[in-house]
Design a protein around this nucleic acid. Structure first.
Length: 307
DNA sequence: AACTCGTGGGT
DNA sequence: TACCCAAGAGT
C-alpha cells in the first residue's frame, strides 16, 4: 500500500499514513473549503476548463476571473475562437501577461476544429499534442474536464508533496521523475476520486500550504506532514533565480503590445517609438514580437496585431 | 538544462 | 521598499 512517510531517527517506528486515510483527510477538507470557481461548476465545458487552464498558467486566480468570463462570452466554443483573427485573441488577453498564451490558445482552438471536429479531445496524448498544452495542462484538462485519473503536478501540488511527503520546504525547480512517482503512487484507484483528489491537493496548496507563509496551524495534514515532523527545516540550496523585469526586453515588449492592443488597425512606427527610448532594445523587442507572431509588420512602417 | 516570456498583488 | 510569487510551455 502506498503510504506517506517521514524520516525518523528511530527506524523502528516509521511514521506512515495509509493513502486512503490521506485521501479522506484531503477530500473532506476540500469539500468544506473549496472556492467557488466558475471553471469547477458542472456547467463548465471542457473548452471552458481549457481556457481557464491557459489563463492560469502563471497568472493568479483573481486576475483570471474577469478575463475568463469575457473570453467565454465572446468565444463559447473552439470553433468560434478559430473563426476570429489571432490578433483578436491577443487583444482580448488584455493584461494577463505572457500574451503568447493567447496565440497558443487560438492555435489550439484551430487544431481542435481541424483534428477533433471542434470538440476538445479527452485523450491525454491528443491534448498534449495541442499548442500551449504541456504536461500539466494535458493532465489538468483530462482530470478536471473528463474526470480521468492523472497525476496533476502544478506548483501547488508539487509544494504540498514536497512538504507533506518528502519533508522539504520547496520542490526542485523542475518536475522530477521522483515527484511523478510520488504523485502517481498516491493517486486514488477510481477515476472520479482521483480527479477530485487532484483538485483537492491543488486547492490545499493554494489556500493553506502556500509558498510564502503556510498556515500550518489550519492544515488538515499537519499531523501527517513530513516537513512538520522534521521541524520545518528551511529550504537548502540556491534560491530560485529572481525574475528581474525592470529594463528587460519583456518590459519593452509589454509596452509595445499595449499600444497595439489599444489601437484597432495599423499603427505607425512613431507611436511605438515613444514607449521606449533605447532604439536598439526597442527594435530588438519589436523584432521578437514579430518573430513570435504577436505582431504583423506592414508596408511603410506600420504594424498591427496578427490578422 | 537553463532561459525566455508579462503583469500585478502580497509581504 | 524591493523583492517574491503566481493552476507553465517552448526552445
Amino acid at each position: 500500500m502506498q503510504t506517506i512517510s517521514a524520516p525518523r531517527a528511530d527506524a523502528r517506528t516509521p511514521v506512515e499514513t495509509p493513502a486512503p486515510l490521506l485521501h479522506s483527510i484531503v477530500l473532506d477538507w476540500y469539500r468544506e473549503n473549496a472556492r467557488d470557481l466558475p471553471w469547477r461548476t458542472p456547467e463548465a465545458s471542457p473548452w471552458a476548463v481549457m481556457v481557464s487552464e491557459f489563463m492560469l498558467q502563471q497568472t493568479p486566480v483573481k486576475r483570471v476571473l474577469p478575463a475568463y468570463a469575457a473570453w467565454l462570452e465572446r468565444w463559447p466554443t473552439p470553433a468560434r475562437l478559430a473563426a476570429d483573427a489571432p490578433g483578436e485573441a491577443v487583444r482580448m488577453w488584455g493584461r494577463l501577461g505572457y500574451p503568447r498564451r493567447a496565440l497558443r490558445l487560438h492555435a489550439a482552438a484551430t487544431a481542435i476544429v481541424e483534428r477533433h471536429g471542434g470538440r476538445v479531445p479527452d485523450d491525454h496524448a491528443e491534448l498534449l499534442a495541442l499548442p500551449g498544452v504541456g504536461e500539466y495542462t494535458a493532465a489538468a484538462v483530462a482530470s478536471f474536464a473528463f474526470k480521468q485519473r492523472h497525476a496533476v503536478l502544478d506548483t501547488n501540488v508539487r509544494r504540498v508533496f514536497a512538504r507533506a511527503v518528502t519533508g522539504v520546504e520547496y520542490p526542485a525547480n523542475a518536475t522530477t521523475a521522483a515527484e511523478r512517482r510520488v504523485a502517481t503512487g498516491l493517486l486514488p484507484a477510481a477515476d472520479e476520486v482521483a480527479a477530485e483528489w487532484a483538485v483537492a491537493v491543488m486547492e490545499l496548496g493554494a489556500l493553506v500550504c502556500t509558498a510564502r507563509s503556510p498556515e500550518c496551524g489550519g492544515c488538515p495534514l499537519r499531523a501527517q506532514c513530513a516537513w512538520q515532523r522534521a521541524g520545518c527545516p528551511p529550504h537548502q540550496g540556491p534560491a530560485r533565480r529572481g525574475q528581474s523585469y525592470e529594463g528587460t526586453d519583456r518590459q519593452v515588449r509589454g509596452k509595445l503590445l499595449a499600444v497595439l492592443r489599444a489601437q484597432h488597425g495599423p499603427v505607425p512606427r512613431g507611436q511605438l517609438d515613444v514607449v521606449w527610448p533605447d532604439d536598439i532594445q526597442r527594435d530588438r523587442a519589436l523584432d521578437g514580437l514579430v518573430a513570435d507572431g504577436l505582431v504583423e509588420p506592414l508596408a511603410d512602417g506600420y504594424f498591427q496585431l496578427p490578422q
